[in-house]
Write a protein that binds this DNA or RNA. Structure first.
Lengths: 107, 107
DNA sequence: AAAAAACTTAGCCATTTAGGTAACTATATT
DNA sequence: AATATAGTTACCTAAATGGCTAAGTTTTTT
């Protein structure tokens, strides 16, 4: 029962990876540029990039020896949708309860 | 550098836990009721509930021997905010790029 | 041609995670 | 009083995660 939301949410469940996403909203960047602010070995950092790519949050292209990473616009919206749906259902339910409460008051 | 978003997103990165959240939008439920549709041992399932509670996604109260679990309304909205912010920054950036492109066309 | 830069691959390690069983506690039911 | 129900606690295991180092490949630069 594995869902795209699994890899998506766990990808965002790490501060390094969220920082990368935040950085990428400012525009594409190379692996080295993305790595620079993070105090960890490059291979370790590359694994984080791989997780982001598996989650469909970024894609990358290589030119010569440098790889440039881009944010994937659609992915953020998808998870936002899931959260929005859950919240909407919840709030509708609260509204119905409120109505029921009002009606029973008027008895 | 641990953030409330860490526990939040990883809590949602599991299908069992997302199913529990979806169920709870329909209204509160006891541990047994929540457990019933999931083919796993109860102690295992309880750990999932604990993760949801740590993430601030649910809370629960015990009456007699039964514990009732409720969804925590505010939490979903917080993560939605994070995603919305990232998407907004990204889209603003695309808009600025589009303007630049238009301006350089008019030369 | 040699050296530096920018990744990549391979493999190691500690901790966390997601699953399980067994045994226990506390409350209802009969 | 005895039994069943609803959780809870304690502990075990396999796999995934997040970190590392060392060594390799492929471009650029000098």
């Amino acid at each position: 029962m594995t869902n795209y939301l699994d890899t998506f949410f766990t990808a965002l469940g790490d501060p390094t990876r969220r920082a990368v996403i935040e950085r990428l909203t400012q525009g594409p960047a190379t692996v080295s540029e993305l790595h620079a602010p993070h105090d960890m070995a490059l291979p370790t950092f590359m694994k984080h990039l791989a997780r982001l790519q598996d989650a469909g949050l970024v894609h990358s292209t290589k030119q010569g020896r440098t790889r440039t990473v881009h944010i994937e616009t659609a992915a953020l919206a998808q998870a936002e949708d899931w959260l929005k749906t859950q919240r909407r259902v919840w709030e509708n339910r609260l509204d119905r309860l409120a109505e029921l409460a009002e009606n029973s008051n008027s008895h």
